[in-house]
């Protein structure tokens, strides 16, 4: 059973601030409990289908020029200023 602490930990790792912890815990718990129905599907031995895409099918690894997004934290050269990593 997923606990409120599990939810808090996952949320903090995903950089999410959750206001109403009770409500999030209750609803996410409800979702995960429902996912447990997968246990009764009897698919333990099923092979997972994977679609292989050949590298030759991929588009050329070339830069596609786009207009630059306009936002407030841009300097004169068009570079974006972002917060410092501490």
């Amino acid at each position: 059973m997923i606990t409120e602490d599990d939810i808090k930990q996952v949320a903090s790792m995903m950089r999410l601030d959750i206001e109403d912890k009770d409500d999030y815990t209750k609803k996410v718990q409800r979702m995960l409990e429902y996912f447990d129905v997968l246990d009764s599907a009897g698919v333990q031995d099923e092979a997972i289908l994977v679609q292989h895409i050949n590298i030759s099918q991929l588009r050329a690894d070339k830069h596609i020029p786009h207009d630059t997004i306009q936002c407030k934290s841009q300097d004169k050269r068009g570079h974006l200023r972002v917060p410092r990593l501490s």
């Binding site: 996952v10 999410l16 959750i18 409500d23 999030y24 609803k27 996410v28 979702m31 995960l32 996912f35």
Partner: peptide, 15 residues
């Protein structure tokens, strides 16, 4: 982010 989006992100971080 809205509450439903956050819930699915949390569930999706867990499963």
């Amino acid at each position: 982010f809205g509450a439903e989006v956050k819930r699915r992100m949390i569930a999706g971080g867990f499963v």
